[in-house]
Computed example of a mutant assay.
Amino acid sequence: MGITVQNITGNTAMVIWPKMASCADSFYSIMYHPNWNSMLSSYSRKSFQKEERVPTSRSSFVVENLTPLTTYIVCVTCQSANPSSDQCRVFNTLEQDPASASNTKKELALGIWVTSSVLLLIIAAILLYGCLHLLCRRRRERQQGRNEASKQEHGTALTKSMEHGSEELGRQNQLMQDTEEKHSGGIQLATIIKNPSACKEPIVPASKSQERAPMTGQCSAIN
């Protein structure tokens, strides 16, 4: 069939094959397997570890994620048929390129840094949310305490005002009673002064054996 493997590196290899007329209405299957041993392995599809499907419009494919310094077998078949020996090639991957290894390490370090940054941002957001929630709760508690203190002060002031009003009302009532008593006494006195004859009682003649004593009557009682 004329399969060739080119541009082999430690992790990749390009597989090239001629177009087959029998695959015009289907696809190509690229199968490969590491650590190939022709004495112990067969060409059945179950013997291959990985398989890729490629459209019939293509005649090459780059196999990736290979292991450095490893023997591989790669086969190209039409659709899902079992490969034959002339449809396969064995190749060895090279030692890993130092530049590629450095890039892999950089990518790994970058991935670790990005993951750590995301975790730190999440933790910071959680802590900030907790602090804001605690601050708001304390502010509400302080506001409630101020409101309660204001209500207590208002109630105390209202109570004092009511007590003061009661005292004033009592004083006014007492003053009115004193005024009424004085006014009533003045009326009685004025009545007595106006009618002085009311205080005089008729003199009753007494016998000679009895002493004549003045009868003061109500005037003496009033005096």
Rank of each mutant, 00 (worst) to 15 (best):
P68F: 00
S184K: 08
Q96A: 04
Q174P: 03
P98G: 02
A101S: 02
S197Y: 02
D86F: 04
I122N: 07
L66D: 01
N82M: 14
I112H: 06
A81Q: 10
S166P: 03
E167C: 13
C78N: 01
G165W: 10
K106L: 12
Q143D: 05
P98D: 04
K182A: 11
I187A: 06
E181Q: 11
E181L: 11
C88K: 00
S161Q: 14
Q152A: 15
E180L: 09
C78L: 03
E64V: 05
Q174H: 15
E167P: 02
K105S: 10
L128R: 15
K151D: 03
V114S: 14
T67E: 13
A157F: 08
H164T: 13
E64C: 09
R139G: 06
Q79M: 10
V90G: 01
A124G: 06
L158T: 07
K151R: 09
Q143P: 01
T179F: 10
N65M: 05
L110T: 14
H183Q: 08
P68R: 01
G186T: 08
H154E: 12
L134C: 11
A149C: 04
N103V: 14
G155Q: 14
G186H: 07
K182N: 11
S102Q: 15
T159P: 01
V74F: 01
Q144M: 05
S80M: 07
R139Q: 10
V76N: 01
Q188N: 04
N82V: 12
K182C: 08
E168V: 03
T104K: 12
Q177L: 07
A190E: 04
E181C: 09
S100G: 06
P98F: 02
V74H: 00
C88L: 03
I192R: 01
K151G: 02
L121F: 13
L120M: 13
T179Y: 05
C131F: 15
S117P: 05
H133E: 12
A198Y: 03
S100Q: 09
C78Q: 02
L128G: 15
S85W: 11
E163F: 07
E167D: 07
V90L: 05
E64D: 12
C131R: 13
V114P: 00
A99L: 14
Q152N: 12
R139S: 10
R142P: 00
T77A: 03
Q144S: 04
T77I: 09
L135F: 11
S85Q: 15
I126W: 12
R171P: 00
K151N: 09
L108D: 10
S102W: 11
Q152Y: 06
L119D: 10
G155S: 13
Q152D: 11
R137L: 12
P196N: 01
N65A: 07
I123W: 04
L127G: 09
V76Q: 00
L119P: 01
T93D: 00
Q143Y: 02
T70V: 08
T115D: 02
E163N: 15
